[in-house]
Design a protein around this nucleic acid. Structure first.
Lengths: 105, 105
DNA sequence: CGAGGATATGTCAGATACGACATACGCGTC
DNA sequence: GACGCGTATGTCGTATCTGACATATCCTCG
């Protein structure tokens, strides 16, 4: 497995199986996490392209800077729900969100 | 607004503003609900096409028949998270999920 | 080297979503 | 009508997610 991707997945809190120091995900779990990461990256792209800070986005979403940071990191504590809602609130269209999800890893 | 769609939205628990008997959603809220309904419909399509019962699907997902019913109804108590995870578990690809979301209403 | 702004990480109380169960509804078949 | 099967709806205890706060890390500019 790609090293940075593995780190990314671990950072997202998806270390599975305490006994093993390896990352074991079923195909669906992996697909789900990758999907989440794609949305997270898209959120960051939108923010950076507009030159916004996490604090600014947080205010726009009625949330906090720390949560925005976790969203962008695809932290295990953030749901796809929150990511999608946030993207829509920031102006992304349903179509764009779908395309981001559909795009192959 | 289309009548069946309105009923659908109300059924989904999105009646907003207790004082008004009308459905008032911001553009993002509307997009979010429609997105959810699209996933819900897709879930039902997959189930029906395979000739599965809700009970069977529930067992496959490690859930209950009532929750599957609520998923298909795009009930307010089900998250996009759950819908996406369920679709992936039932064999849908990330790409298919994205296409369903991207498809215009 | 600070200082200050931006981002990351850890934690927590309150909010929400979860599976499960009970029960109601619809619709065939007898 | 009464049963059986599938689906819908309501509720509940628990698990997970959320915004908020504190604090740490990372840059860049002076």
């Amino acid at each position: 497995m790609d090293k940075t991707k593995r780190t990314r997945l671990e950072a997202a809190g998806w270390r599975v199986g305490d006994a093993s120091d390896f990352l074991e995900l079923t195909a669906e779990e992996a697909a789900f996490v990758e999907l989440k990461i794609a949305l997270a990256d898209y959120l960051r792209d939108i923010r950076v392209q507009h030159g916004w800070t996490q604090t600014y986005v947080a205010r726009a979403l009625g949330s906090s800077q720390s949560r925005v940071a976790k969203m962008e990191a695809a932290d295990a504590s953030v749901s796809v729900d929150l990511l999608v809602k946030s993207l829509l609130t920031l102006g992304a269209s349903r179509k764009q969100v779908g395309q981001v999800i559909a795009r192959a890893a």
